[in-house]
């Protein structure tokens, strides 16, 4: 089921066409990345999805409903804006408790989410006194507090240090695994998205150039990396490293990205299954992919620009 369906969206700011006939589908349970350079139309698309902008043409539905001025959807959707602002003179804990009361959830949840994002020491700080990174964490806590079914995040890792970004992306994966929460993440930092996204929509000049599951896009545009989604990546990685034909192996919260010597891909499939059993872990899926999402993005954009 698609939680977000956007069809033929057009949005202009005077002469500037920010979104130009955009189609987007975000499947339930997926972590979808909306990737593109600055000025591609990501933020405009997200604002239309969130009901903050009306498109000049086209149609968008979230959970099958129009997002404009729709309070029902707010219970189901959490939002992290590119630049988040909150009533600045209130204290961190006080405001998060207020948000609990807004959504009708126990105030104990406030402590829980602030702990998840690492703001336990900032309870009594006024929101205006938070650093940019802390404010971003606060925005994330604010987005997840009511356990929404869909989280839309625009440049969520902006202003965070590398450790913060890593923690946050792991949090995204964990929430997706545990709560089956759907994510739409917009970013121009492709290595980060490649770690967490199942699907991507590559957007440039207001259009989606390509969209779909990462594996399908890799298959279509490039085939060099094998992606193994596994329950315990570290354990399987430790076994795979012993194989002679493994050229490169990268582990993250979701799985392992493996580059093999040419022609050894089939061997890897067999060996991975055996070694997973040995490591007592379960393989959730194996996909082939390109060397990186950045390369995929470049291949897609180059390909589409050639058509034009």
């Amino acid at each position: 089921m698609s939680l977000i369906v956007a069809e033929d969206l057009v949005k202009k700011y005077g002469r500037v066409v920010a979104v130009d006939g955009l189609y987007l589908n975000v499947e339930e349970g997926a972590i979808t990345g909306l990737i593109g350079p600055n000025g591609a139309g990501k933020t405009t698309t997200i604002k239309i999805v969130l009901g903050l902008l009306k498109p000049d043409r086209g149609h968008v539905e979230v959970f099958g409903q129009e997002p404009w001025d729709n309070p029902y959807l707010r219970e189901l959707v959490g939002v992290v804006h590119e630049k988040a602002y909150f009533p600045s003179y209130q204290k961190v804990l006080d405001y998060i408790r207020r948000v609990c009361r807004i959504f009708g959830i126990p105030e104990a949840r406030a402590h829980e989410v602030l702990g998840l994002v690492g703001l336990e020491d900032a309870y009594d700080r006024q929101i205006k006194a938070l650093s940019a990174g802390m404010l971003q964490r606060f925005a994330i806590a604010h987005a997840i507090i009511h356990e929404p079914k869909l989280i839309v995040a625009d440049e969520m890792t902006a202003n965070l240090d590398p450790e913060g970004r890593s923690l946050l992306l792991d949090l995204v994966v964990n929430i997706n695994k545990k709560e089956k929460t759907t994510f739409l993440l917009s970013s121009h930092i492709l290595p980060e998205l490649s770690r967490v996204c199942d699907s991507v929509a590559i957007i440039n000049r207001g259009k989606v150039y390509a969209a779909g599951k990462l594996s399908e896009l890799y298959e279509k545009y490039a085939t060099e990396i094998i992606r193994i989604n596994v329950e315990k990546p570290e354990k399987l990685a430790a076994e795979l490293e012993k194989l002679s034909y493994i050229e490169n192996i990268k582990t993250d919260a979701r799985g392992i990205s493996v580059r093999t010597a040419k022609g050894e891909e089939e061997n890897l499939y067999e060996d991975a299954a055996k070694l997973a059993k040995k490591a007592k872990t379960k393989i959730l899926g194996i996909e082939t992919g390109s060397a990186s999402l950045e390369e995929l993005y470049r291949l897609v954009v180059t390909n589409e620009n050639k058509k034009v």
Binding site: L50, G51, Y72, H81, A84, I102
Partner: peptide, 9 residues
């Protein structure tokens, strides 16, 4: 924008 994310018209 933040207020628009709350369940309120």
């Amino acid at each position: 924008q933040t207020f628009f994310s709350y369940p309120l018209k």
